[in-house]
Amino acid sequence: MKFGIVIFPGSNCDHDIIHVLRNVMHQETIELWHKNPLPKDFTLDDWIILPGGFSYGDYLRAGAIARFSPVMHDVVDFARNGGHVWGICNGFQILCESGLLPGALVRNQNQQFICKNITLKVANDNTSITRGIPKNKILTIPIAHAEGRYIADKKMIDQLLANQQVLFQYCDKNGAINQEANPNGSMHNIAGICNDSRNVFGMMPHPERAAEEALGNSDGRLLLESLLQNALV
């Protein structure tokens, strides 16, 4: 199993996730340049990560242009064949734009970019990236985005909740899910979701920014540890 990190020209969290996977988690990690197709030896055992950043500048709408990039044609096929794809921040936006995940990420309620530590909890512990996280654990993981307010129509939201596709919700320090603890105005405080076949994941918080003791926070590593335990089973 290896990880492929897609690099768009405006990706800027690519080096961070590569560092964490290679040097903290000791995983084989390769770079996938946006102009190239997926390499031949990339199999369904491997994982693709779409990192944070501003893919093609994102002047229009975050991820709106990235969905048309050459690599994304392959990523969509890979996911439709059951391959695992995980989008973080801009990656999540791109997955919604490409139709691999439902709903949309629109401008934060306060109309500002927000970068700070937030608290969130696991809503569904039956996926590979959440299964290993201790029950009722409140995770501190930073966000950094201008367009992170998750919205979808009522039918879709009901479906997401019924299918247990909501992975993470913003909560306060005590775990309560309320408007005060909602940094960007997302519906139902949604911070991350998966598709109905549970092989495509998207989240706005940045686990790679909370993966090392040297930075004083390793809550984000729990997701990666969970992924590795479950993927290798």
Binding site: F113, C115, A214, L215
Partner: peptide
């Protein structure tokens, strides 16, 4: 923080100030 929450202060995972 009204100012600096609008800046990405953590990209690059080198800034220790966030939690310290």
């Amino acid at each position: 923080h009204w100012i600096y929450y609008q800046y990405d202060s953590m990209v690059g995972i080198k800034n220790t100030l966030t939690n310290h």
